[in-house]
Design a protein around this nucleic acid. Structure first.
Lengths: 333, 333
DNA sequence: CTGAAAGCGCTAACAA
DNA sequence: TTGTTAGCGCTTTCAG
């Protein structure tokens, strides 16, 4: 069978001390005489003893693992956040249980529940929206949860974001300043607060300040995919758009290639500013101008915030806004 | 304090049955009279009882979580595999502990150890290389491990891959058939068996069959990054390469843009075939021709294989090769 | 079909 | 500085 797993008890017996003492040296508790510590360490080495984290978790009620709910790891925007999360988690000795939700409300709830069942010490949630049902589950959870790249319209949950409204406003102003009177607004579903209540608001604000009438024909609601962007070209042309602010880089790449493939020149005939500044912006031609956001940092800060929450430290501000910028590349003048 | 967590014991008491019975209904054991099952279920509902997976894990020695070691989630190639892994894992009721290794041998070993400590039921490993030390740890683990997109030179570990040598040979033959006498081979480190023993071998094979002398000046060893590719242009020119087979899509995008930015036309002046067929190949202009591999499936099949291993099913073939192809796009004639 | 009881491997008071 | 002793919440024989 299985070669007998060696337990803390075996070590205690061999080292001729109590389990408590072994536990102490394993956990770095200073209240152990150096001599006995050495003795125990030797036995541990000799027996090749490995502490069982599950048993430890049960006894201590801490698993040193946190749950991460992500729409899709395959999306470069989210995977950048995830990387920030994992790095900081590792730094603080946590592991990550990563699950893809596809932004599917039911799946999110279900996943959240299995994470709770697994007794994770905390959760980082990414997604564009928090359904009512999900919010209820969040409330019920006694585990700390922080949102990364995801706004809480009610402003009650800890979260890390940039000021999307201001960023979009600035980007659109830039486009208008270049002489574009008809700037399209292209985003994912307007059911998502981040699009409806932040990005679109910034867009309207910029128009207003420039004295341009808002025209909802210029607002395009689609899904965040390259394909969707590519297919948008005819529609953009039919409303005489000469520029666009776009909510996602893959989507933007699609739009740009769609426009280009139709024979238009970017930026001469059509200017584009995208929103996430992923490395994709530098890989396409022309390179895309973008709102910049510190993707990795959003994840990293979110995780850091979570560690504080998990150790019940007092946190000054639970909703942190990281700085954004506007990076001019070749898709704008 | 904490609202008292409700345990299986509470349910048993309230339902006036034994813990064993509650355990049975929770685990869907059929040996329970429908009436008592209902009674228990009602109490579970009323008390909002949630089984504690950690306790269950300790008692049953199964955690229903598997470890996934990935070089970098941010790399679109690996994230595609990861997605396949997670989907199948979820299908079989497993969760994934995901950790980035950066291909760093020490980190890999360390991560592997914490995964073992957490008593994962299995592990999927991704990476270009298996260091000697890592291999020793693998051997020591009593937990099933499968490699995804990662060859085992010794052919002993379960793995899922494509036939890299044959794929590269076919791609290079294609390039040669187009009249290219000087085809560059651009890959990551040749310390990696996948590059040295498979891809390069396929490259040499194609040359040999075409009667072209192998010239190691045409072999470029670099890291898998966009930047690295972009910087390669002068070197490529200096050895008069007119085409290249490239081991990674981001790297290939970099090469292509570097070449293009230097004033050359792809594919007229320089042909490119890349290796991973990620969505990036369709986003750049010209679109890149590529060896196709079923990325998602490699992950999915690896996970499926792991589930079999975890439940001790007999597996016919532990090293599976999935089909590859050659997708002609606009970076070749 | 159901219950009693013995752990799983470790932590955490509490004593000493 | 060290040991004793309860559990943590659940699964799993073994009886009945």
């Amino acid at each position: 069978m299985d070669k007998q797993t060696v337990t803390i008890y075996d070590v205690a017996r061999e080292a001729d001390v109590s389990m408590a003492t072994v536990s102490r040296v394993v956990n770095g508790n200073p209240n152990v005489k150096p001599a006995t510590r050495k003795k125990v360490l030797d036995v541990i080495e000799r027996l090749d003893y490995r502490p069982n984290a599950v048993a430890r978790g049960l006894a201590s009620k801490k698993t040193t693992t946190v749950g991460v709910i992500i729409p899709d790891v395959t999306n470069i925007y989210f995977s950048a956040l995830a990387r920030g999360i994992d790095d900081i988690a590792m730094m603080y000795k946590y592991n990550i249980i990563l699950t893809n939700s596809d932004e599917n409300g039911r799946k999110e709830v279900q996943v959240l529940n299995t994470l709770m069942a697994k007794q994770v010490d905390g959760i980082v949630f990414m997604g564009n929206d928090i359904s009512e049902e999900l919010r209820k589950e969040f409330d019920r959870a006694k585990t700390p949860i922080v949102l990364a790249g995801c706004v809480d319209e009610q402003g009650v949950m800890p979260s890390v974001n940039i000021d999307y409204a201001a960023a979009v406003e600035e980007a659109v102003k830039n486009l208008i300043d270049h002489g574009n009177q008809r700037v399209a607004f292209i985003s994912g579903s307007l059911d998502y607060p981040i699009n409806r209540d932040y990005r679109l608001k910034g867009y309207k604000q910029a128009l207003k300040k420039a004295g341009i009438r808002y025209d909802d024909k210029l607002v395009f609601e689609t899904d965040y995919s390259y394909k969707a962007g590519q297919l948008l070209q005819p529609a953009l042309q039919s409303v005489n758009a000469t520029a666009a602010i776009i909510g996602d880089d893959e989507l933007a790449a699609g739009v740009m290639n769609g426009v280009t493939d139709a024979g238009l020149k970017v930026p001469d005939d059509f200017e584009i500013i995208t929103s996430n500044d992923t490395k994709l912006t530098e890989m396409v031609r022309p390179k895309m101008s973008s709102i910049t956001q510190p993707l990795y940092d959003i994840g990293a800060v979110a995780m850091r915030l979570l560690t504080k929450l998990m150790s019940s430290e007092t946190v000054d501000d639970k909703t942190v806004l990281l700085p954004y910028g506007l990076m001019k590349r070749a898709s704008t003048h």
